[in-house]
Design a protein around this nucleic acid. Structure first.
Lengths: 182, 182
DNA sequence: ACCTGAACACCGTTCAAGT
DNA sequence: ACCTGAACACCGTTCAAGT
């Protein structure tokens, strides 16, 4: 990549990070280009879709999560590993307003640039769940795709309650324990 | 109301119903006006916001739910009443694509024209939950607002899996039973 | 009292022209 | 090879003019 192109790329990433943090994942692309000091066409050249830009912004965080997932697979007890992982998913997916919704619509959409990230979360969740189920700590009938969707749905709900920072934790506890008395 | 105004009102409702069913709750308002055979200004006169139009479209269904809720409060067992109610909430909130999201953002927004509907669901859920908790069937620590949000989140998730009609039921079962073995 | 639709604002996306 | 920004499309919302 040419030196000026690389600099533009980096500037766009930085501007997008700010914009997503401030306005959510549907921040104006034109404003991002303006903040980065480039034309709107340059933004589209580097990032053909909003999701491509979002993916680039999230990339580091996704890599971190992936590594944490690998680590958790080697730790005990299995149930605690799973719970730690699910908390990490919620934390990540609430990073920007609108992110949980974007991820939800990418779960089954192979054409989305976020599909890879979703797939990683899906695979890691499946492994951690299977291990916890094998250890007898978690219901054997639970499907991992349902679990991940519910956890992402919790992230989405929590996103809309910025005044209630404990909400996600309470809802995750609800999911883990269930409504029914035992 | 003048006769022609009333007719326009009815036509707009009908056109909105079709549009929401086809394109989801963010269907084009201009197209709704065009389908109804009125100017866009007339739509705005009758329904100053998209939510006002949506509320009018949903009104009958909300009334039905309210009545069902009242009836369920008189039926036993309390746990089954609660479960039936939650299923009804999911069915209603998945009626149009985008509805669950619209309702979620109206839960704490008193200025939303959907706030009243949300409040009804909240109040009915609280009563049915309290009764089931008193009967000892449901965890006493669960907060009714969290429960309703999770159920709406399930509706939102299911909305994005049109090919999997059993998804909402599985996720509700997950919420009711919890992940952990007992 | 109610309706119409032009006008304005805003944003996403493409592409011809420029370096 | 890369960048720019005008141009086009589309939608929401307001409001002056009309009946």
């Amino acid at each position: 990549m040419r030196a000026d192109a690389r600099r533009n790329y980096e500037r766009l990433l930085e501007a997008a990070r700010e914009a997503f943090a401030g306005q959510g994942t549907d921040a104006s692309l034109e404003e991002i280009a303006k903040t980065a000091g480039v034309g709107i066409g340059t933004l589209y050249r580097h990032f053909p879709t909003r999701q491509a830009l979002l993916e680039a912004v999230l990339h580091e965080g996704i890599t971190d999560m992936d590594q944490q997932g690998e680590r958790l697979l080697g730790e005990s007890p299995a149930e605690e590993s799973l719970e730690t992982w699910l908390r990490a998913v919620i934390r990540h997916n609430t990073r920007y307003r609108g992110l949980a919704a974007e991820l939800m619509s990418s779960f089954d959409d192979e054409s989305s640039q976020l599909f890879g990230s979703c797939d990683m979360m899906r695979a890691t969740s499946a492994q951690l769940l299977a291990r916890a189920q094998h250890a007898g700590a978690i219901e054997s009938r639970v499907e991992s795709a349902d679990l991940l969707r519910m956890v992402n749905a919790i992230a989405w709900s929590a996103e809309q309650m910025p005044d209630d920072p404990g909400a996600a934790d309470r809802m995750l506890a609800l999911l883990l324990h269930g409504l029914r008395t035992r």
